[in-house]
Simulated assay, not measured.
Amino acid sequence: MKKMYVVTLCCLCSCVSSVSLTTGETLLTGDPLPFMTMNGQAKREFDVAYDKVLETILIMLQEEKCFIKGADKQCGIITAKQYIPTNNPFVFKTGENKNMSFLLIKKENGKTEVRLTIYLDEVYRAETKNGYIYSRNEKGLLIEKEVYRVWFDKLTERLGF
């Protein structure tokens, strides 16, 4: 009888935690970035021509094993997705998708401003009698300064600074 109570309690705890994960709230982990704008975009300006920055971002995304969903040179928009697996067979969460949007803005002084926005999705797997069912939980805008800093540092390095 005690085993049944423990199992029921574990099930209830997992349900409560999964409900809190599906609220879709913005992830506020750490201090806001000093270069974040009011709408959540991170930005950095580079003393490099627009075409060179665009090409470098595309190459960098491919090297980082990202799926490039779209690129528009005229508008300066690049969208990409990066899947990061959990690599833990004992959890239902199989990984995370980072959905990235880069906006490139030509400046009059020959510089290029790059704005980056990242949204996070979590991917879950459940086993059924017919196989696996995958589901996605949209977590929302990612505001974690280290993630943005890493992407901008990689771009800065590839641009030769």
Rank of each mutant, 00 (worst) to 15 (best):
S101R: 06
V91L: 04
N130T: 08
K129Y: 07
L120Y: 07
L12A: 14
G76H: 10
C11H: 02
G140P: 05
E157L: 12
P85V: 04
Y119N: 15
E64Q: 15
G140W: 04
T56F: 11
R136A: 01
N99H: 09
L61I: 08
F35I: 06
F92Y: 00
M60C: 08
C75D: 15
K93M: 02
S20H: 09
D121S: 14
C10K: 06
K98R: 11
E96I: 02
E127W: 05
A42M: 07
D121H: 12
I143W: 00
I84G: 02
F92Q: 04
E63Q: 14
E122S: 12
E144W: 03
K69L: 10
D47A: 10
P34M: 01
T56C: 13
I105V: 11
E63C: 03
E64W: 06
K111T: 11
E122V: 00
A126V: 11
P32K: 05
A126I: 10
L33W: 08
E45L: 01
E138H: 15
I68K: 05
M60D: 06
F161P: 04
T94N: 01
Q74D: 15
K107L: 13
D47C: 02
N137M: 02
R149C: 00
K73C: 07
T94I: 12
K98I: 01
T117W: 03
K139M: 10
I59F: 05
I78H: 03
S135K: 06
F67S: 13
A71V: 04
K81W: 00
M36A: 10
C66Y: 12
I59A: 14
M1T: 07
C75L: 15
Q41C: 00
G160R: 13
E45H: 00
K52E: 11
M4I: 08
L58H: 06
E45M: 01
Y83R: 09
V19D: 11
R125E: 08
